[in-house]
């Protein structure tokens, strides 16, 4: 496709499509870039997970498709920080933990993806996320709970907390990029923040209110000082860490005219005062990219630097994700109701 035709020309940057995959048979819900290896994972209502490989020239190809064995939609995927383990969250209420068998001989082809199932949620599991150290896993569900699991050796998991703070479905969980702070977003319009009390259990230390409808997605800034939340109220809210256990609203972004399903906060291009690039997408089919700057005076400035309409033709776009690997921060992937996964590169307009 000629991406240029779809571009709005009033921005400094543009999104050029570099790959498109239509191997899923149904709606693609979610994506996760492997943090250490050149792999991108996608999951779908077709109950499968696809893996795509890319090389140093930016050429993408499908590597494999995993039939997960989940009996319903695979709603979310997440890689462990090691890049070796993949977690899946399914509407069948289960969480899958996937590891690839070691090659039989040194240098040989790696083996099959093996699965361990985590049970506990009562109904649809909607999101899964690893903490930055990889020692904790969080899951959430329509059953209104957030579970924190401790990752033990040999694919053993122990539930160390069941958080029952939300009054409705929990749509998303996200970990702080360096500390063990967990955030969850819900159909009850709120965001909750949790930490582990060393003498007690995990507990919620703050409720972030302000959104006027379902909060669908959360993204911490790479520096860890900010949090972005995306909602059915058509806004993205920005929150700043004011003290160790205190977050406060610091701004609001508008730029979508239907539900915003996903936000991702990438490293950006490393300018001074740079707080990275924030990308958002949703039911209006649009991808927006904001350049975020955090000058010394404590404010957080945002500027829309690229926007792309009809990114998946007429379809909703369910997920947007920046590549987290060093030097690849200009790569963005999206997943849509058109059953496709697309990869984009953001480039300056000459």
């Amino acid at each position: 496709m000629d991406s240029d035709v779809l571009m709005d020309h009033n921005t400094e940057f543009q999104l050029m499509q570099v790959a498109e995959f239509s191997n899923h048979e149904e709606r693609v819900w979610h994506l996760a870039w492997n943090p250490t290896r050149p792999l991108l994972a996608s999951c779908s209502s077709d109950k499968s997970v696809n893996l795509y490989h890319y090389d140093t020239t930016g050429k993408f190809e499908q590597a494999t498709s995993i039939s997960t064995g989940h009996s319903k939609t695979v709603r979310a995927v997440a890689w462990a920080p090691s890049g070796k383990t993949l977690a899946t969250a399914s509407f069948d209420s289960q969480v899958g933990i996937w590891e690839q068998e070691e090659p039989e001989e040194e240098g040989g082809a790696p083996g099959e993806w093996e699965c361990t199932i985590l049970e506990g949620h009562e109904n649809e599991c909607k999101c899964v996320a690893y903490s930055s150290s990889g020692t904790l896993l969080a899951t959430c569900s329509r059953d209104k709970t957030v579970w924190v699991w401790e990752v033990q050796p040999d694919s053993e998991f122990e539930c160390v907390g069941v958080l029952m703070e939300h009054t409705q479905d929990v749509k998303c969980v996200a970990w702080h990029p360096t500390e063990e702070i967990l955030a969850s977003a819900s159909y009850d319009d709120t965001i909750r923040l949790y930490v582990d009390d060393p003498d007690e259990d995990w507990y919620a230390f703050q409720v972030l209110s302000g959104h006027e409808s379902t909060v669908w997605s959360l993204a911490f800034s790479p520096c860890g000082k900010y949090l972005a939340s995306a909602s059915d109220d058509l806004t993205i809210r920005l929150w700043r860490r004011a003290a160790q256990f205190k977050w406060e609203p610091i701004g609001m972004l508008r730029g979508h005219d239907r539900t915003i399903f996903s936000v991702s906060w990438g490293l950006g291009n490393g300018d001074g005062e740079n707080a990275g690039w924030l990308a958002s997408t949703g039911s209006d089919g649009k991808i927006n990219v904001w350049e975020m700057k955090a000058p010394e005076n404590g404010t957080l400035d945002s500027k829309l630097i690229a926007t792309l309409r009809d990114a998946h033709s007429v379809s909703d776009v369910n997920c947007v994700a920046w590549n987290p690997r060093p030097g690849l921060g200009d790569l963005l992937a999206t997943a849509g109701d058109d059953c496709s996964v697309r990869v984009w590169r953001i480039t300056g307009v000459a």
Partner: peptide, 15 residues
């Protein structure tokens, strides 16, 4: 209204 227009809930209901 909220329930009917939440695509994730609708998708789950259909399963």
């Amino acid at each position: 209204n909220k329930q009917l227009n939440d695509k994730e809930r609708v998708a789950a209901a259909l399963e």
